[in-house]
């Protein structure tokens, strides 16, 4: 396990290197001079020259990259061109709502998709199973933002049960916090529920007719116990591998959901910064999200190796 852990930890380095090169190059993909684009057409030549210097645009590309990466390593993601605040401050200032949204969504996913998959498998010979398979395909075919609009229409306007916008920090109390987050978190979770439940169903059906389950049945174990102890617990392991993809889906989805529900998270920060052409913030947020995703995948892989010894010796 130790050697696997070390190997897996080391593999983060090249990935993060490529990630930072991509993020660094983002600014240089812009057609024309970034300083010019940031400051707008009316900017004076002096202001442009000063910003060029501030952004280090006069240096050769690789020097710029090394300067930038050196800064990033010390936790300095630069300064917002729009608000003059440090980017790290902006990111951490906006991270609370995003992490709240994601944790609540993950909770929805686990609480709904696990019992759903078990139910489907235990009723696999009924019409419920093909119905579910089709429904899960429908789930991944619906644009999140459209579903959100419809749910806002139903639960925010026609039956005004939930607030349709805004966010309350946890510090204001648990009630208002969760009340504002329920609808957005549910929308965010919905697509992933379909994916996870489908994955779990597929791997459970894989082991439903395996020899060890047949043996268990032959011994007279109740079908319920066969499903829970033999089928479900074995299906859980492959399902953990898609948890990383789930988090990616959630991270991408928060951008849309936060914009729709006007939740002041990092997704909203990213969209605002794109409209303001605030490149240091765009770079910072994108790098931050990628780093979270890499970290989550690392944890998932280590967890997987811990649960399934075969992986470690691969």
């Amino acid at each position: 396990m130790l050697s696997y852990t070390i190997r897996r930890l080391l593999s983060v380095i090249p990935v993060m290197l490529v990630v930072s090169i991509i993020v660094f190059l983002l600014v240089h993909l812009t057609p024309g001079n970034p300083a010019f684009i940031i400051l707008g057409e009316d900017a004076s030549p002096e202001a442009i020259a000063q910003l060029e210097k501030q952004l280090g645009l006069n240096e050769p590309l690789y020097i710029q990259f090394f300067d930038w990466i050196k800064q990033v390593m010390t936790g300095d993601l630069g300064t917002s061109v729009y608000s003059a605040q440090p980017v790290t401050e902006l990111i951490f200032g906006n991270f609370g709502p995003t992490i709240s949204l994601m944790v609540l969504s993950l909770l929805f996913i686990l609480v709904i998709s696990i019992p759903l998959a078990i139910l489907i498998v235990s009723l696999r010979k009924t019409i419920l199973d093909p119905l579910f398979t089709n429904a899960s395909l429908l789930g991944v075919s619906i644009p999140e933002f459209w579903l959100a609009i419809l749910l806002v229409l139903v639960f925010g306007v026609t039956f005004p049960i939930f607030p349709v916008a805004g966010y309350m920090p946890l510090a204001e109390g648990f009630g208002p916090w969760i009340y504002h987050l329920l609808l957005p978190a549910f929308v965010l979770a919905l697509v992933e529920i379909g994916i996870i439940a489908r994955m779990l169903r597929d791997s459970m059906l894989d082991s439903v007719n395996q020899d060890y389950t047949k043996t268990a049945r032959a011994k007279g174990v109740r079908e319920r116990d066969v499903l829970m102890k033999h089928v479900f617990s074995n299906a859980l392991i492959p399902t953990t591998t898609v948890l990383g993809a789930t988090v990616a889906g959630l991270l991408g989805g928060t951008v849309i959901i936060e914009t729709l529900f006007t939740i002041p998270g990092i997704g909203q920060l990213l969209i605002d910064s794109i409209h303001r052409r605030d490149y240091p913030v765009i770079q910072g947020v994108v790098l931050f999200i990628a780093a979270i995703y890499v970290l989550v995948n690392l944890i998932v892989d280590l967890l997987y190796a811990f649960l399934d010894p075969r992986i470690r010796y691969d």
């Binding site: 090249p14 990935v15 993060m16 290197l17 490529v18 990630v19 090169i21 991509i22 993020v23 983002l26 990616a248 889906g249 991270l251 991408g252 989805g253 951008v255 849309i256 990213l270 794109i274 765009i282 994108v286 999200i289 990628a290 995703y293 890499v294 995948n297």
Partner: peptide
Amino acid sequence: GFLAFPALLLALA
């Protein structure tokens, strides 16, 4: 490295 970004986010950036 490319896979380390959620697809929608990479496209957005």
